[in-house]
Write a protein that binds this DNA or RNA. Structure first.
Lengths: 255, 255
DNA sequence: GGGCCAAATTGATGGCGATCAATTCGCTGC
DNA sequence: GCAGCGAATTGATCGCCATCAATTTGGCCC
């Protein structure tokens, strides 16, 4: 982040990277920032948390962070770049489960089977903080705030997974998707109205359970209706209220 | 249900109730049975777990266990009966999120928002074990096995929520649904091939994101194909392999 | 047993989005 | 700049499932 600032006006939006951490201060945009803040800097627990972190990457576009069936040892917080998780059935077709932006956590759904139930693939060059899960859950036992935090991360993801399961129209799905991405970028300190899609149209289509052609058509219609600007992968949400309205029943005012 | 018993041989299957617990022994079919076993009976932690349990109910059919927006204080394990969880949008249409059988746990998705994000409604007369969540997470801090168990319950539900989100045909959804119910009954010690649907066709339809008419047609077709027997709400899975095959790509061999 | 109402089944029709097909766009390497 | 190739867009057609409508079944109270 600090490095990017020197580039000046070439950057239209803040480059999504959650990397302002050092030995003393934890990444402020990270999903675990709250847990750290809630115990206060300088406490021994915080340094414990730092000790079990390992920075890994960069992984280049298309590289796997983990694969289906890999033994579960750690969860990963995205530091930079973006990731998709997906399952691949025996016929080789893949099904995208989710996209993860800087500051978000992947691997939580591996706790139960004790193996990763899905693949994680870098959508662009990506770096991670790797948290040993045994160490982390041991620490969580001594550190109620961290335990609470893990419960919340899991519970939250549970809520958002359920949202995807609704029987929404193509327009509703797409509107909800754009709003959701915007909200998530915003929550991490980036612009919530102007951002870059890090995934291909076909990945969006797969994630929303639509055909790629439908995604293209809906985006085109949204543009002609003045709801968004989109050029290649650069998106601007022009009419958030309008999108929000389309993305109706999305369980009004949750998360 | 007890009224049914007087009908004598009309009842072919074991009455689904997970209630063999007392002050000393925990319900053996309960979702928390494993956690108890793993620390061993008689240990002080176990009695701690028992102390924070409160038996509630019976709730009659259609009664709410909790409602959207209620402050989150506890999670509930189903002791007897069955439950559906659902959200209701502002137009009043409901969307079924899941069904819960004896031994299963509801309320885990309330941890993050700290309020219940959905309704829980008894599908038939139902009883519960109510676990105070603050007490439980405090105990989890002292009892790694319990913490682990909570993580696993959450993670597991995360996995199953994702399954529902796939773009499956009506046949695939229905087959997967029947197999899943059978597996779950079996996991709790009941028959996995012969059981009673505790929910209405319209609830199944809503849950599977199909029209009630489609559910009716698919079940009829399954019957004429010899895959199942169904009469009213009594189901027998005649050809599990056939159903399993229909329910294909359901992320082969997870959960 | 009879009447009432909701649930379930069965049939006829239509719409949304998938699929197939044809360009066009945009990036990469030479 | 141009060839080459995959991604994205745009158009035409088809099929699954929702919707509307009509019975039929089953549960419940009198």
């Amino acid at each position: 982040m600090s490095a990017e600032k020197s580039h000046g006006q070439l950057i239209h939006w803040r480059n999504p990277i959650a990397d302002d951490g050092d030995e003393i201060h934890f990444c402020s945009t990270c999903a675990f920032a709250d847990a750290c803040l809630s115990v206060g800097y300088g406490k021994p627990e915080l340094s414990d948390l730092h000790c079990l972190v390992e920075h890994v990457g960069p992984y280049r576009q298309g590289a796997h962070i983990f694969r289906t069936g890999d033994p579960f040892r750690a969860i990963y917080a995205v530091r930079a770049g973006a990731v998709k998780t997906c399952v691949v059935d025996k016929e080789g077709r893949e099904q995208v489960l989710g996209f993860y932006l800087p500051g978000e956590v992947i691997g939580l759904n591996a706790i139960y089977p004790d193996r990763f139930p899905c693949e994680a693939v870098a959508l662009e060059s990506a770096q991670f903080c790797r948290f040993s899960f045994p160490a982390m859950s041991a620490l969580a036992g001594r550190m109620p705030a961290l335990q609470q935090h893990l419960f919340r991360l899991l519970s939250r993801e549970l809520g958002s997974a359920r949202l995807l399961a609704g029987d929404y129209s193509a327009d509703e799905r797409m509107a909800a998707f754009l709003i959701d991405l915007g909200d998530r970028y915003e929550a991490r300190g980036f612009s919530g109205v102007h951002f870059r899609l890090s995934m291909a149209r076909s990945d969006i289509a797969n994630y929303l359970r639509l055909a790629a052609e439908t995604v293209s058509r809906v985006l085109g219609r949204f543009r002609s209706q003045g709801l968004i600007d989109i050029e290649g992968r650069a998106v601007t949400l022009r009419d958030r209220a309008g999108l929000q309205c389309l993305a109706r029943s999305s369980v009004a005012g949750l998360s």
